[in-house]
Structure formats: C-alpha cells, structure tokens
Amino acid sequence: MGMPGATGPPMSLEGVDHALRRRVEERDRIAGDLLDLDAHPGNRLLSGMTPTGETGRRWEQAQASLVTLWWLFDAYRRVLDLAAEARAASRPDLGLLTALLTGASVELKPDDVPVEKRSLLRAAGEWVTLDTVLARMDRTYREIAETAGAVDAAWTALLPDLDRADAARRAAGELRESLGAADTELDRLDAEARRLRAQVATDPLGSAGLAGEIAALARAAEARRAALEQAARVREEYADRAARLAGRIEAVAEAEREALRVRDLVLAKIDSPALPEMPGQAPALRDRLAALGTAGGRWLELVERLTSLERGVEEALAHAQRVTESMTGLIGRRDELRGRLSAYQAKAVRLGHAEDIALADLYGTARDLLWSAPCDLRRATVAVAEYQRAITRIGAAG
C-alpha cells in the first residue's frame, strides 16, 4: 500500500524549505533528548541491575516504552530522509513534499511493532502525520522520564542516610579492630545495613516506607561509633583517670571524716539536733575502683563502669559536703541568735532601759540557753524572740 496523498494544495518551494528545516531541527532536538534520557542517572542505574517489586514492574514498562519510542523516532526520521531526498531533486515534486511534510506520511506497520507491544489480533497498518508521531513520542517520553525521575528521587532520598550509616559503621569497625574487642551491637547494625541497602538498591520505589528505619540505622551507627571512640579514649586515658579517681575518692573520705567531726561537735553543742544520715561511701568507691582492673581490656565495658564510678564519686563528695553544711548550719543558727541577742541588748541600753528588771530577766533567760552546752535551739529561739518583741514595744512607745 502506498503513501496517502496530501489533503490540501501543494506548498510553495519556500514553504517546503521552511517546513523541512523546522522538521530537521525538531528531529535533531528529539535525538538529543532521547540520548539524554538514556544517560539519565535513574536509567543508567536500573540498566546495570535487576530491579524487583514496584521498581521492577515500572522498569519493565519503561523498557518496553523506550523500545516503542525509538521505533517511532525511526519512522519519523525515515520520512524526513525521504523529504530531504525529494527536495534535492533537480525538479522537486512539491505535491510529494507537501504530502510527506503535512499529510499522513508515516506508516506504522504491525510487523514493525516491538514484540512486547504486539497482540495476536493484529491491527491493520496505520498512516499518521509527523505531528501525530511527535505527539505519541512526547507522551511515551514523558512516561519513561517520569519513571526514571521517580527512581532517581527515591535513591536520592534514601541513599544519603545509608551512606552515612556505612561511613559510621566503617569507622566503628576500624575502632573495634584497634580495640581487639567483639561488638555484637555493631554486628547487628552491619546485618541491618546489608538488608536495607539490598532492598533499596533493587526496589527504590517500593522502599519509601523504609526512610524512618534507614535514618534510625544511621543514628544508631553514629552512636556506636561514638561509643567506640570513647572506649578508645578510655584506653589511652585509663591510667590517668584511675589515678584521678583515687585522689577524688580520698577527697570523699576526707569529706566524710569532716562530716563525722562536725556531727560530734554538733552533738556536744546542740541539744537533740535533727541530724541527717551520715555519709560513708568511700570504702565502696575504693572497691569499685579496684574492680575496674579486673575488666581485662574490655574497653567498651570499662567506658560505662569508669564513667559511672566518676559520676558516683562526685555525687558522694557533694553529698558529704551538703551533710556537713547542714550540720554546720545548726551551730551557725546558735551563733546568729547570740549575735541578735547582743544587738538588742545594746538597743535597750540606747533606749535608756539598761536597768529594766523585766528586760534583764528576759535577756538572762535567753543568754543562759544560748551559752549552755548543749544548747536547746528551739527554746533559745523563743527566748530571743520574746526579748526582741519587748524591746520593740518599748521603742514604739517612745
């Protein structure tokens, strides 16, 4: 079957040249776009593997569409080659050229349809215009590009965290080797990373739901690297830190001895004081420090035990100091009452009541309580308050 003729009057030679030039430029642009599509990162990555799942299904469709796209482009190009040949004749056939450039000049034969696009119920051959072929190519191109772009976007979203996890795991593995220690947690992270990477690599489009798991893996790998880095630091610093700990434990022991000394002083000077429980952590802390030496180079374990002991030593020291301050405050309270009593006695003298018998009795009661050992702070506080109120009334009366 021959090519259908043009449906309108022939174009002028100038019109033919213009249309042919536009179509050739169009052909070259399309060829460049098709090459760019082949070079797209998503297409290149998929071409080098066997995708599975949703990605495999979309890629199979895209490959079939790509074959169709090149087939359509080849049919388009053949018509332009015929038009260029006709235009080069010594006496160009303007009717033929018009038919080629504007009419249904592209034959899409059933036998030329790619196998994956065929049906056993063969359709008859089809003649379409260059514009129709261009529209079909554009539609097919967009479908393929959408798949390639979706795959590339999926990889772009998921691979950075996987790469971050891999970098952290490699660094952690090197640290583990240098420490000569087994690490079951790092082994678990390695297995998890292999599983997730295999799934993302073969089915990025079906792996969008793994983003949370992958981010968690990256965080866990970085945390494990940090733990191993800390273990390596502990190995280098262990002797110095252990020596410092021994010194701090002696500081705890001294603070606890000071608390006992202050307790005995308070018991001697204050009647029935409410005392806190006495601290006594130094012996247990010494035992914990000695036990660190039995870890046998298990540096990951030592990190936790050493850090915990350092924290415990500082807490014990702070507790002993707080207890001492609390008990010292009882004596300070007595001394503060003594000072207040002396100040109000001086005020009574200034007010001209130095010989006031009632005031002298109140002063004597308070003084006896405050300068007795042990001192009854509760009664002394009440006595000083009564003496203070009495002088305040005198002052107010003028």
Rank of each mutant, 00 (worst) to 15 (best):
A239P: 00
E258H: 11
L101T: 01
G364W: 02
R288M: 08
S105C: 02
W70K: 14
R78C: 07
G8T: 15
V128A: 08
Q61P: 02
A104D: 12
E254P: 05
R176L: 12
R248G: 01
G48S: 05
L275S: 08
R197F: 13
S119F: 13
E301A: 06
R91V: 15
G15V: 06
Y363L: 09
T202F: 09
R367D: 05
R136E: 03
V67P: 03
L302Y: 02
D33T: 12
D163A: 14
L97M: 07
D93T: 15
Q321T: 04
H18G: 03
T365F: 11
V382P: 05
E315A: 14
R263C: 10
A220W: 01
A215G: 03
P276N: 02
Q230K: 13
T129V: 07
E185C: 09
L100D: 01
D264M: 10
L37P: 00
T132D: 01
A274E: 11
A354W: 12
A246C: 05
A282W: 02
R379F: 08
V323M: 02
P92E: 06
R334Q: 08
R23N: 00
A154H: 02
G32C: 04
E310Y: 05
L96M: 07
A373R: 09
A226N: 07
A239W: 09
G15D: 13
D183I: 10
A373C: 04
A385G: 02
D356W: 03
L100M: 12
G398V: 10
A88T: 12
W155C: 03
